[in-house]
Design a protein around this nucleic acid. Structure first.
Lengths: 228, 228
DNA sequence: TTAATTTGTTAGTCATGGCTAACTTTTTTA
DNA sequence: TAAAAAAGTTAGCCATGACTAACAAATTAA
């Protein structure tokens, strides 16, 4: 166990890159991540990512061959998971204790996740009594960095008559989160699929006695577990 | 009331400089602050401070003449006070809710004070029920930026027989804070001056039935209010 | 009041992490 | 399979905020 004393002397940028690569890797499972794709995701130029990738390779967090796709080393993954842990714990804190709403937490958590203090985050975890999920329904990695991914079923993959429960939402866009809140959906909402329209794949759903029509794009960002 | 929408688009460095100038200005009341002094305080070269001062002058936060001393504009002061507010609120949170001790909070608060979110800090304030003092006994500026300084009496300024109460400690050094904790002093401790030794100005004090001898340097960093 | 010392300034360098423009390699598709 | 498109790379530039070395002004001391 060559558990090298992880000094975590990473810049904010380096951390952002590692987290981004990790997110892209797990998002589109088993599909490898490319340089331009990463640039796109981080909203920087491909030249910038190329540069940073080089640096992260020499530091031993990223692996890739010239003109090849990107992957993370164990060390790289471990750092990314710790960032995700911090991000989600802060989001939970903001929502549950500081009156933030679903859609307000992301930007602030994005800043807070870079605060460097092991004790801070572990104590925050304890203070909230070790929450398992963040406000968007995503699992919070524990202090050991165990990252369990619950298989995500998209609402859009269900058929008429199915009943499901909202377990998570894609927190990538504030507009989307606002929309979800506004129509009244919440974690654990029970949703029944009334109709899937062939024409544009829009879906008519019912929850809490509310009937709504949502687009395919919307349904792709809502994750559920099947009940019936 | 030209209350210009303060976008607060300042870098971490710019914030650090403004706060440092403010601290130096109020520390040595009415004594003006020089460039080298600032460099010393921030542990950077005089060339660096000179550079940054130029920038902060053009941005309208600092005023000074060539080869002259430094002062802050109202805008500059207001930013510094908000940073101090954030710093002290975070310190309070760390101590009162996350099991941090007196001497552990500074470094983390130094990072947290740069998080940009008005809502975050005001909600944190509310969550803790608007604390008036931080763990070191310093006043916490309120959301309006009202910064009331309690006149600080140094323990070293008292005479034999005086009784006083600990109201604050200088939080500039971790070693000092550790020392204070270790001998058992706490905020509100009642301290009696038993003896002031002429030879080296060391002071024999009694508190909570503990008798200790402290150096002049120590006593210069302990602030009290007189009781008898 | 001149000399020494301290304080402040300027010029020029470096690392980080962005950028554009031009180029090369790989992949797609016609 | 050859041309077009997409993806990846390189070179060279910029701003920020550090630095050192050299110099100028102001202050202190002899």
């Amino acid at each position: 166990m060559t558990n090298k004393l992880n000094l975590n002397n990473l810049t904010k940028s380096e951390e952002d890159y590692l987290k981004a690569i990790f997110q892209l890797l797990i998002e589109d499972d088993s599909v490898k991540v490319g340089n331009n794709q990463l640039a796109d995701y981080l909203k920087v130029s491909p030249a910038s990512t190329n540069n940073m990738i080089k640096k992260l390779k020499t530091k031993g967090y990223v692996v890739s061959e010239k003109y090849g796709k990107l992957d993370l080393t164990e060390e790289g993954k471990s750092i990314a998971v710790r960032l995700i842990r911090k991000h989600r714990l802060w989001e939970t804190f903001l929502c549950n204790y500081l009156n933030f709403t679903w859609d307000e937490v992301h930007d602030v958590a994005e800043q807070l996740e870079h605060i460097k203090s092991r004790k801070l985050i572990d104590e925050l975890d304890r203070f909230m009594d070790f929450p398992k999920k963040d406000p968007h329904g995503e699992m919070i990695p524990n202090a050991n960095g165990d990252y369990s991914i619950i298989p995500k079923i998209m609402l859009s993959s269900l058929s008429e008559g199915d009943v499901c429960q909202l377990v998570a939402v894609n927190d990538g866009s504030v507009h989307f989160l606002k929309y979800v809140s506004e129509i009244g959906l919440a974690l654990s909402s029970e949703i029944k699929i009334l109709e899937v329209r062939e024409f544009d794949k829009s879906i008519r759903i019912k929850f809490d006695n509310i009937i709504e029509t949502v687009t395919r794009k919307f349904a792709d960002n809502v994750f559920v577990k099947k009940v019936v």
